Simulated scan of single mutants.
Amino acid sequence: MTSVRDFEGLNALVTGGASGIGAAIAALLLERGAQVAVLDRDTAGAPGGTLALKADVTDDGAVKAAVDAAAAEFGALHTVVSNAGVGAIGAVTDNSDDEWHRVLDINVLGMVRTARHAVPHLRRAAADRPGAVSITQTCSIAATAGLPQRALYSASKGAILSLTLAMAADHVREGIRVNCVNPGTADTPWIGRLLDQAPDPAAERAALAARQPSGRLVGADEVAAAVAYLASPAAAAVTGTALAVDGGMQGLRLRPAN
């Protein structure tokens, strides 16, 4: 258990916070002193001690109700972590229009809806806690590197990267910082399901690990630590930043091992 309590007196909302990276983020913010609300379609896995709010990010009314409920319960909202999202596999020829609409609706418009309804609460909080009010969005290495069989997923994450920069510019003078994290291939339930579908799950896991210079998958707790930094008062001067948590996948070009 960490002894850091840098979120004491701060209130956070984490979308997609009942599993995987989102649950790790919610648990870490709670551990570091925040009051935490989790917005998810299925809240069964929400960490103990969080306020569980059932909502689907494709439903604008449900998102508004959940965001408003968190702000009302806590009295203010300082930190939003927009993490809800889905994966997609295939080249540009492989997914139908319906699938493109579905994934973009969740991954991109889900973050738009969350921010749309959170920003009024964040504006009010920013006057009392300068530097401590933020939105952090879960993006991906897929936004900045070309990955095979990820056309739709990459397009959605590229949109999130651009959205993060635009939102940071729009809200910096209001005291709201906006950043994103770009995980590499993370050891999450979605990756687990992907591996289960492979002809040789062990070989597929080894291949995914090998394409990261660190030689392993990224842990959900490592992504959570990066989010906690970006959302914390220690990052008061950080906005419009994409923080890679990818084992060196984006920036390193190693020679083949002997």
Rank of each mutant, 00 (worst) to 15 (best):
V63L: 03
L10W: 05
A18L: 06
L10D: 10
D56Q: 11
A44G: 13
D56I: 07
F74E: 08
V63R: 01
G61Q: 05
A62G: 13
G45V: 09
V57N: 04
V63D: 01
A46D: 12
I21M: 15
A44C: 01
A37F: 03
A23R: 15
L10C: 06
A55N: 10
T50A: 02
Q35W: 12
D68V: 01
L30D: 12
A69N: 03
V38M: 13
D42P: 00
F74M: 09
A66C: 05
A37G: 11
A70Q: 09
H78E: 10
E8N: 12
E31W: 02
V38W: 14
L53S: 05
L28M: 10
A12G: 09
L77R: 11
I21L: 14
T43I: 14
L53K: 09
V63G: 02
A24P: 05
P47G: 05
V36G: 10
A24M: 01
A12D: 13
A76G: 14
L51T: 04
K64L: 11
A66F: 09
G33M: 11
F7R: 09
G9F: 11
G20L: 03
G33R: 14
V67G: 05
A37V: 02
L13M: 10
A55C: 13
T15M: 02
L39N: 07
T50M: 02
G33N: 13
L53C: 08
R41M: 10
K64W: 05
R32D: 14
L53V: 11
V57C: 01
G9E: 15
L30P: 00
L29P: 04
A62I: 09
A52D: 07
G20W: 10
L77S: 09
S19I: 10
A52G: 10
L77K: 12
G48H: 12
P47I: 06
T15V: 08
G61P: 01
E31C: 03
Q35K: 15
G61V: 02
G49R: 10
G17K: 00
E73W: 04
G22N: 15
F74L: 07
A72H: 08
A34V: 05
L51Y: 02
G49P: 04
A66M: 06
L30S: 15
G75L: 05
A72N: 10
A26Y: 12
D59V: 06
G16D: 07
A55E: 07
E8V: 00
E73H: 15
A71C: 01
L29R: 00
G49N: 09
G9H: 11
A23W: 11
V63S: 05
A71F: 08
D59A: 05
R41Y: 01
A24T: 08
A26R: 10
V38H: 14
D40P: 14
D42M: 04
G9D: 15
A44Q: 15
V67K: 00
T43F: 04
G75H: 14
A18T: 00
A37Y: 13
T15W: 02
A69T: 15
A52S: 12
